[in-house]
Design a protein around this nucleic acid. Structure first.
Lengths: 152, 152
DNA sequence: GAAAACAGGTCTCATAATAAGACCGGAATA
DNA sequence: TATTCCGGTCTTATTATGAGACCTGTTTTC
């Protein structure tokens, strides 16, 4: 009766969710992108139970999304920083952000905004483009499955 | 002691996760993108408990991600299909897929692949681009927060 | 047309995950 | 040196999940 294990799935979406698909992981990763790297800072910012945070951080380190590093302020403590693999989740976070912005706020309701550092302007929409640089919508794509049972 | 409610968060990532951030929702949505729209087909494909699937589908319908429609095969049953809002999650699914492909498979290990329908070629990498069409990495962006406490 | 199988659920129960907060030892600070 | 901060662990109460029995109406098979 444990939660399903998706780590062997043939579908990359499922494998990703096996690593970062639970309730807190992506919020921790979002905070890491924002420079919130210390245990107590994460705990305070997220309002997560301390035992939960311990467990989640451990999992993310085991999976290679985060790694521990000596604290940047010179103290004896440590920080949790994104690995190269973890930084690869940037498009996931941006996609979630843009979907939320577009669909989950009332007109006029305020939210934080992602800016281009150089210009200070809001970033543009994340889009999948074809090899001819056309925007690809869902219907322009298809999944090639591998297994005979139709799973993927 | 209920699970945290993020629906009022100022951060769009958090609001998104409030809707689709639990263990099954994104897998259900992935299946919907793949044309798996019937209760029993979802249940079989995902291996999810029936009671869980009922609850998740209800939530996704309430949030406007899915809607029910008469079955496309003419029977008296119904289907769960993506709404416009739900179809907006396409970049999220693609981003998760590409991260999984890049990081969670052994060399040589096979997985399903997303193709451009027109050409049959694998889709290219989803990338955030600046207004000058340069690829934006994490460090090229920053979040403008709203609240004084530094949350977002 | 009757029987069997399928579709789309509900209900119950056992177990796992989560939230809340007390507690604790070492590090940093006043 | 005393006090507070940091990064946890432990316990307990509650909620979520997984497994599967059961149920009603629909469709298919014979």
């Amino acid at each position: 009766m444990k939660r399903k294990n998706l780590s062997k799935a043939e579908c990359p979406v499922a494998r990703s969710l096996d690593v970062i698909g639970d309730w807190w992981s992506l919020l921790i990763i979002r905070d890491a992108f924002d420079g919130i790297n210390r245990f107590s800072a994460l705990q305070k910012n997220l309002g997560i139970a301390r035992s939960m945070l311990t467990a989640r951080l451990q999992e993310l380190v085991e999976h290679g999304v985060l790694e521990t590093a000596p604290a940047s302020d010179g103290t004896a403590y440590q920080e949790y920083v994104l690995t190269e693999m973890g930084r690869g989740l940037f498009p996931v976070i941006v996609a979630l952000r843009q979907w939320g912005e577009a669909n989950l706020y009332q007109p006029g309701e305020q939210h934080s905004v992602l800016l281009e550092t150089q210009t200070g302007k809001p970033v543009t929409r994340l889009e999948l483009r074809s090899r001819e640089n056309q925007v690809l919508k869902w219907r322009d794509t298809m999944v090639r499955k591998l297994s005979p049972d139709g799973k993927h």
